[in-house]
Amino acid sequence: MKKQGILNRELAGIFAKLGHTDQIVIADCGLPIPNGVTCIDLAYKLGEPSFLTILDTVLDDLEVEHAYLAEEIKTGNSHVYGVVQKKFPQSTYITHEQFKEQTKKAKVIIRTGETTPYANVILQSGVIF
Score class of each variant (00 low, 15 high):
residue 97 E to N: 15
residue 83 V to Q: 05
residue 88 F to T: 07
residue 113 G to Q: 04
residue 13 G to I: 07
residue 20 H to T: 09
residue 46 L to N: 13
residue 116 T to Q: 01
residue 40 I to K: 04
residue 102 Q to Y: 14
residue 123 L to V: 13
residue 66 H to S: 09
residue 21 T to E: 09
residue 115 T to Y: 10
residue 92 T to E: 15
residue 42 L to P: 03
residue 125 S to F: 07
residue 89 P to G: 10
residue 121 V to A: 04
residue 85 Q to P: 02
residue 46 L to W: 10
residue 61 D to Q: 12
residue 23 Q to F: 03
residue 83 V to C: 07
residue 11 L to T: 00
residue 46 L to F: 14
residue 24 I to M: 07
residue 113 G to D: 06
residue 110 I to A: 03
residue 22 D to N: 11
residue 129 F to W: 10
residue 113 G to A: 06
residue 106 A to P: 02
residue 30 G to L: 05
residue 76 G to D: 07
residue 48 E to K: 09
residue 36 G to F: 07
residue 44 Y to K: 14
residue 104 K to H: 12
residue 42 L to I: 11
residue 34 P to Q: 04
residue 77 N to G: 04
residue 39 C to A: 10
residue 85 Q to K: 15
residue 66 H to E: 14
residue 69 L to E: 03
residue 122 I to W: 00
residue 120 N to K: 06
residue 70 A to F: 03
residue 86 K to R: 12
residue 79 H to G: 06
residue 6 I to V: 15
residue 78 S to T: 13
residue 125 S to V: 11
residue 98 Q to L: 12
residue 32 P to K: 05
residue 126 G to S: 08
residue 16 A to L: 08
residue 22 D to V: 04
residue 105 K to P: 00
residue 7 L to V: 10
residue 64 V to Y: 03
residue 8 N to I: 02
residue 91 S to P: 03
residue 129 F to I: 13
